[in-house]
Design a binder for these strands. Structure first.
Length: 278
DNA sequence: AGCGGGACCTGTGGGC
DNA sequence: TGCCCACAGGTCCCGC
């Protein structure tokens, strides 16, 4: 489900609901949803939620007020179907609720923060900086695509693998998934099968510009909702209405009218225009 | 090195 | 209506 724009939207919409709340309880209903490197749920009790941010596809909730050794972040990977939202204190747990936090608001009232995840691929991690450094996925995460220039981007595109595979590799750049890889390659006019290392400087520049344009545009529309994704207020995104390539295999290209091709690259459904993308 | 395939899970939609 | 199959926004692991 959520790629960079969706996680960014969750971070933004969740913050007003949980800011300055103190965690009074944390229940993990599905043990496998807790990351293997995570500190125990009890270690979160008494900590205050100070911030929400995004790193790649990870949501990072900043925690303050702990003793030395206590977690200072709650890192959540929503994977395909994870959702975060708050509810009244008496709300019943859902069929797919994997973790729930009791939050004490600054005004003394109580609220629940739910982590629901139908497919249960998502993970939650109570971490210290030391723990994060031990997590290879975090340690090796590539740069933020909205914060780099072509001088950083171009050298990271190496080798004979398909450019689409490179974009999906979170070590190359963090936050791009199947939707935005297809959309950016379409906008840049580059075939997804092109060897990553074969792009000219000009093509790499075009691709980065397309990535940044598409990601910003999607963020401005609160992300894409195919099926499951909702922001913290329960709202769907709107960017799916703007798709040029993703999910449009066999339909006419919006630029040239040729029928879009559908194939698989690295196991992922891939749609592109054989006429516009070279 | 990188690819294909399978695993991890549950649900949905299409075809018959 | 019901069954079976394919497929889904992500990552990881294995064998080649």
């Amino acid at each position: 489900m959520p790629e960079l724009p969706e996680v960014e939207t969750v971070a933004r919409t969740l913050y007003p609901h949980i800011r300055d709340c103190v965690i009074s309880d944390m229940r993990v209903l599905r043990p496998a949803s807790l990351h293997e490197l995570s500190l125990k749920p009890e270690s979160a009790i008494g900590l205050r939620i100070a911030s929400t941010r995004r790193r790649g596809k990870l949501l990072v909730i900043g925690l303050e007020g702990g003793a030395p050794g206590a977690p200072d972040s709650l890192v959540i990977h929503l994977r395909m179907t994870g959702r975060l939202f708050t509810r009244e204190a008496n709300e019943a747990l859902g069929k797919h609720t994997r973790c729930v936090f009791n939050l004490a608001l600054p005004n003394g009232s109580e609220r629940l923060l739910f982590f629901d995840d139908t497919r249960a691929f998502g993970k939650i991690l109570l971490a210290t900086p030391t723990i994060l450094q031990r997590w290879s996925f975090w340690r090796e995460l590539g740069p933020e695509p909205l914060e780099i220039g072509v001088d950083t981007f171009a050298p990271r595109l190496r080798g004979a693998r398909a450019i689409k595979s490179a974009l999906l590799d979170q070590k190359v750049v963090a936050g791009i998934g199947n939707i935005y890889a297809d959309e950016a390659l379409f906008m840049a006019g580059l075939a997804p099968t092109r060897e990553a290392g074969s792009l000219s400087d000009q093509e790499a520049e075009r691709l980065l510009a397309a990535i940044q344009h598409i990601l910003k545009l999607s963020i401005s529309q609160c992300g894409s909702s195919i099926r499951d994704y909702r922001d913290a207020d329960g709202n769907a995104g709107a960017f799916q209405n703007t798709f040029q390539a993703y999910g449009r295999g066999g339909l006419p290209c919006k630029r040239c009218g040729a029928l879009l091709s559908k194939t698989r690259i690295t196991g992922r459904a891939t749609v592109f225009c054989p006429n516009c993308q070279k």
